[in-house]
């Protein structure tokens, strides 16, 4: 009997495992805006995944994949600000707070809040990010806009660059996910 239950539960676990949506080509971009200068960077190599059963949301952002308008900005971003040879990825791992409100089998736009740990530049902080989940057919879209402070993550802006690099950075997330393929 025990074996049968174990087998049944295992099957259920595998089925639950199948209810994962993911991508490795998600988009994240950010904007830095001061009175004097505005610049942005985009990254289209973001890995993201959502599990339907538990509402786990995960992002992995390769820092060196951010593309800037000017090569020298990318150099400074990687070497001087993000120190990407030491901290090559930024990650978010959290949960959707109001999971029951999201009907993954019904088309629609659902306003949600994701809460979890955001790691960047070697510093991990708990953040809460409002976002949108768009269900359309068998695909999911995740959108979020939020602001972080460089100073929270020990990313130092030298005094003579304060006028061109903002301490508060606006991040926007735009990822289209599809059901994870079974192996």
């Amino acid at each position: 009997m025990k074996k049968i239950i174990l087998a049944l539960v295992s099957v259920f676990a595998i089925a639950a495992n199948a209810q994962v949506f993911n991508t490795s080509t998600g988009n994240v971009n950010f904007v830095s805006k001061t009175k004097f200068e505005e610049f942005s960077a985009t990254n289209s190599q973001v890995s993201a995944a959502v599990s339907v059963d538990k509402g786990v949301v995960q992002f992995k952002v390769p820092v060196n994949s951010f593309q800037f308008e000017k090569a020298v900005m990318q150099t400074h971003f990687q070497e001087n600000y993000m120190e990407s040879s030491t901290f090559p990825t930024s990650t978010f791992k959290g949960k959707i707070k109001d999971l029951s409100a999201v009907k993954f089998n019904t088309d629609g736009v659902y306003e949600v809040v994701a809460e979890g740990a955001f790691e960047m530049h070697g510093i991990t902080k708990d953040i809460s990010v409002p976002g949108k989940i768009t269900v359309k057919g068998s695909s999911l879209k995740l959108n979020a806009d939020f602001t972080i402070l460089c100073s929270d993550y020990e990313i130092k802006i030298p005094k003579n660059n304060v006028s061109s690099v903002s301490n508060s950075i606006n991040i926007s997330v735009d990822c289209s996910l599809s059901p994870k393929k079974k192996k």
Partner: peptide
């Protein structure tokens, strides 16, 4: 284990170049 959804994701395909 299932909680780590990206554990087996193949990341960025570019080799990690040592620059600067």
């Amino acid at each position: 284990q299932d909680d780590d959804l990206l554990g087996d994701e193949p990341g960025n395909n570019e080799p990690e170049y040592v620059d600067f």
